[in-house]
Design a protein around this nucleic acid. Structure first.
Lengths: 202, 202
DNA sequence: AAACCCATGTAATAGGTTACATGATTTG
DNA sequence: CAAATCATGTAACCTATTACATGGGTTT
């Protein structure tokens, strides 16, 4: 696992917008950065306690709320820590793509298996694309004049670009594998494989 | 964390190609699927012990090797488990993109910060792209006739497509943010922000 | 009054990295 | 003979999810 305590900064980031309860932090993060970042309560509440102890946030317990709302506020020390993190180069992302792992070993099963995975992935990326295009439209309609707009917009565009590329790749791979199914090579396959031994080298 | 024990299947997948030592499993995975999947020794060796206990692999300790090589071999039970996993729909990937998180909050710092991150990301994606294009060329030269070729090729193409999209997005975002720097809005920004309060909604 | 949303929090557990310790063998 | 590579393994630690427990307030 990364050594960088990123959840902490996601929480501080949410609080940099304004005071929030733990619940609201979760919800706001899901709504704004949910397509590339999520936090669970199991992370948020303990982090909030830590931030309180280190003086990066303060709490005010709302007395008139019977619900026991605890509104957290970022302190100057918290802002300073957040800004320092913001300037640091992001740590390289650890990708672990299970779809690709299954496809890589897809040749050990009938092509239908890999094809099925790709068809599902294609449908999912099309759905995700539609969602994000909707988000982009809403953003352009409602927040065009917000000074944060360009920053928000590029993160949405990153998602759109990613899903588009993924969708196109699904389609291309699908046609590669379906043409493979047309002329089966399974017998040939087994023979050739056993005579090779080594995995492919970079 | 995912409930799916994916490392276990990466190890079985490596062994599905042929017998391997733990060391070789790590190396082969890094060489073949390294651009979307990695395993550390801290995972591999304990998993190998578990697989041994559950009868999914066997070991043969090489006596003539002074190094104490332990060669693992997948059993029919192991193959069955691996094939079952291969057919299951891949679990959705949990993306946590620190670059995007920093960019989303980039408006709270001078544009140079976000621009710097994007410039680095651009350079990295160009480098990664070159590497993967090299991998693809090698693959097409050496393994074109291997029955696994189409499966290996699509995973490499996934990487290439992803990095291309990422590179293009970096360039586009960079020009968005640099044009922003030309006509600074920082003062306006702070005023508008404090009058808004709420985070952007989906 | 049921259903749903707001709200806080913990416990169990899994998944994973990093760093270290140890040593043999091969290659330049 | 030094350096690189082969090879096994563990300990400490962190990150994160899932599931649960608990209850108030709001809407239909």
């Amino acid at each position: 696992m990364a050594r960088t305590n990123r959840s902490r900064f996601a929480v501080l980031g949410a609080l940099s917008v304004g005071p929030r309860t733990g619940y609201e932090i979760q919800r706001d993060l899901a709504e704004s950065v949910g397509h590339f970042w999520t936090e669970s309560y199991g992370q948020i509440y303990p982090i909030l306690r830590e931030l309180l102890e280190s003086g990066e946030v303060t709490v005010s317990e709302d007395p008139e709320s019977g619900r026991g709302r605890k509104v957290y506020r970022i302190t100057p020390a918290g802002t300073k820590a957040f800004q320092a993190w913001l300037r640091d180069a992001p740590s390289p992302l650890a990708v672990r793509n299970e779809l690709l792992l299954k496809l890589f070993f897809g040749g050990t099963a009938p092509p239908e298996v890999a094809i099925g995975h790709l068809e599902r992935a294609l449908a999912e990326s099309e759905a995700a694309l539609q969602t994000l295009e909707g988000v982009m439209a809403t953003l352009e309609r409602d927040d065009r004049d917000d000074p944060m707009f360009p920053y928000w917009a590029i993160t949405v565009k990153a998602g759109i670009a990613g899903y588009r590329a993924h969708r196109d790749w699904c389609q291309e791979s699908l046609s590669t594998l379906t043409s493979l199914r047309a002329r089966p090579v399974a017998r040939r396959a087994r023979a050739a494989r056993s005579s090779r031994g080594a995995a492919r080298k970079r």
